[in-house]
Amino acid sequence: LEARLEQANLLKKVVDAIKDLVQDCNFDCNDSGIALQAMDNSHVALVSMMLKSESFSPFRCDRNIALGINLTSLQKVLRCANSEDILTLKAEDAPDVVNLVFESADSDRLSEYDIKLMDIDQEHLGIPETEYAANISMPSAEFQKICRDLMALSESVAIECTKEGVKFSCNGDIGSGSVTLRSHTNVDKPENNVEIDLTEPVALTFSLKYLVNFCKASGLSGQVKLCLSNEVPLLVEYGLASNSYLRFYLAPKIGD
């Protein structure tokens, strides 16, 4: 494997966003790119990252390899990069280590680190292709604020999507609260758009603790996409350049 990423910061942000959810992960490398799939310990949430080969320049992967990496170790090394550094990831066949080289774009500094790999026996889940009943795009900062605000009142949030809009509501010991968003187009700042694409009304309840955790990815993308269908996990997607993405799936809360 040899993969050069223009922005070391991108991988750093991804790792920062997922490392409280999952600890040891396989980075599956093949000629289409670098993928990661992992559930949290309680099997409530699933992280799925895809960095397509087009996100790297150049990208070369001659044989499929799984790089088992502890994310705390990876985070430590990625913190050694300067924010504008270029990152090259390298691994040999049947590797013991993954090699990270940081290059400064405007100086001649070159730093190099090896991280020891681990054998991770990870269960891989098949995620079915789903036509969701509701697809919502909104500013990622807005979604983060809603989740944080409602978590002050309750452990759970009900997300209801109708043709009127999308309503986030909660009920707790001190009282209740709700935030409703309607479709909204801002021509000057498309990042502020709220788009709701609904084929049938949806109502589901989710744990706010996990949603707040997912929102650590807000720095990766100005917009977040929420996809919901009744009785299936919520998909929270942060789109990255070149069709790469960071996705989180969250199992709903269900009636007893």
Partner: peptide, 14 residues
């Protein structure tokens, strides 16, 4: 009262 379901209830091992 509601309880938390898990992901493996919806997505099966590949």
């Amino acid at each position: 009262k509601s309880r938390q379901s898990t992901i493996d209830r919806y997505f099966s091992p590949r």
